[in-house]
């Protein structure tokens, strides 16, 4: 297994993070190449952050949130969904494989569900390792207002 097939998972701290914690408590085995960033709401994930993740070396990015109708923030996940669909279309238009951006709503709040969803995602990213689309994003992306990043 290629050790540098890292993926980034943005998980909202309600349903998906609960699934992650339960998976931990039950000691379910998961592949170690994903990095999880908890967010208050999946609606807080901007396309900017996702593109930054790809630029920094992610082979895949997952956004996990609560199911529609179950968002604690009055359905902010619905507008997030629209945003991410637009991003997905934009990525596809420039030649990035759509499977690299994975969005899951409310399917991962239980230990086994979380483990299953994450393992599937990792497997799909691993299947894409021979593709040549990522260099389109590596190092070529400078967001307009990215003046705050200091080394």
């Amino acid at each position: 297994m290629n050790p540098s097939l890292k993926t980034l998972v943005f998980a909202c701290r309600w349903c998906p993070l609960l699934g992650a914690e339960r998976a931990g408590r039950e000691r379910l085995a998961l592949p170690p190449d994903f990095r999880l960033i908890p967010m208050e709401c999946a609606g807080a994930v901007s396309p900017d952050l996702i593109l930054r993740a790809f630029a920094d070396g992610a082979h895949g990015v997952a956004v996990m949130g609560c199911h529609f109708g179950g968002c604690r923030h009055n359905g902010a996940n619905r507008s997030a969904h629209t945003r991410l669909q637009l991003l997905s279309a934009a990525l596809e238009a420039v030649g990035i494989r759509p499977a690299r951006l994975f969005v899951s709503w409310g399917t991962a709040h239980e230990a086994r569900q979380f483990a299953g969803v994450l393992s599937d995602f990792q497997a799909r990213i691993r299947a894409l390792r021979k593709e040549k689309d990522l260099p389109l994003l590596r190092g070529n992306f400078t967001p307009g207002h990215d003046r705050e990043m200091r080394p």
Binding site: A44, S46, L49, A76, R83, H145, E148
Partner: peptide, 16 residues
């Protein structure tokens, strides 16, 4: 503090 404003702000003005 859901963060949606920060997610859509084009200039990075909105933040938590």
């Amino acid at each position: 503090r859901c963060g949606s404003c920060a997610a859509v702000c084009p200039t990075g003005a909105a933040s938590l």
